[in-house]
Design a binder for these strands. Structure first.
Lengths: 144, 144
DNA sequence: ATTTTATAGTTGTATATACAAATGTTAATT
DNA sequence: AATTAACATTTGTATATACAACTATAAAAT
């Protein structure tokens, strides 16, 4: 193995970005929701479990920037999947009935996605890796 | 832990994207190259180790789409860090003297980046995780 | 030799995402 | 009560990235 490869393999920034690209491609193939990219579906899920969640809290749970959340919610609102309710400084987000329906489909797709990558990477491996990444993100976000 | 968190933690698409965002932020803080985002630096490194590399090969080594490579090279060419040489269907990419200089600085920054995340995640952990992600990407790209 | 097919790269267009500056709203200080 | 500071969200703008359609070149098949 040459030096270049060594560097690429050992750089977590590089391997992590590449891995995210690979698995995003897989996710987009598996999730067939017309216009909705996978990230929107996670937002829907979080709202499902936290009705009237504040936008700030949503950002935190998804690890996205506030401006990104505004754009996501704009789109979901236009599609009539969530509603905004202003409450002083804050904005509370909830699902519409249509949003609930999409959520149910999403859960099915999630299983499919899990099966797709588990087939390639192995079930236990996938679970472990996912947990590891989750914890590593927490550490980085806490410490920086 | 509630169901929502369970789902988020176990979905590799989600944890991988989030982790990539976290570490990209760290990388952007560490790499201070004015206009050049980290990905460009990796491209420079690969060209450094493979003078006259074809664009296709570059795409493969970086796992990026051809159109993305065109845009990257456009930018690097404009900054006079690489040169294009047409050769039939193919385009060969090489570093300029200025590109070589940037490469050297980049290697220093890479060490800094490694130190940043190793401090938070641990040295061995970081190395292992990086290797794991590298291999997992390979598997996914091979099998899909 | 001409036509067809395959391959490499580019261009148009779209999207997720971010940061910085602006806006609006509540809380704190004087 | 008036001013200031803090906070939440939005808007403007930029960027990495992708796909699909296009162009240009080379290779293969007739």
């Amino acid at each position: 193995m040459n030096e270049e490869e060594q560097v690429l393999i050992h750089c977590l920034y590089f391997t992590a970005s590449r891995f995210a690209r690979s698995i995003t491609k897989l996710a987009e193939k598996t999730f067939d929701f017309g216009d909705l990219a996978p990230s929107y579906l996670y937002m829907i899920m979080i709202v499902k479990f936290n009705p009237e969640i504040t936008q700030k809290e949503l950002c935190h749970k998804l690890s996205i920037a506030p401006s990104t959340s505004t754009r996501f919610i704009d789109k979901l609102e236009k599609l009539k999947l969530v509603t905004r309710k202003m409450d002083g400084k804050q904005t509370l987000i909830s699902l519409t009935a249509e949003g609930e329906k999409v959520y149910l489909q999403f859960r099915v797709s999630l299983k499919n996605l899990f099966n797709s990558y588990s087939e390639v990477l192995g079930i236990e491996f996938s679970k472990d890796l996912s947990k590891t990444l989750h914890e590593a993100s927490n550490k980085i976000e806490r410490e920086t």
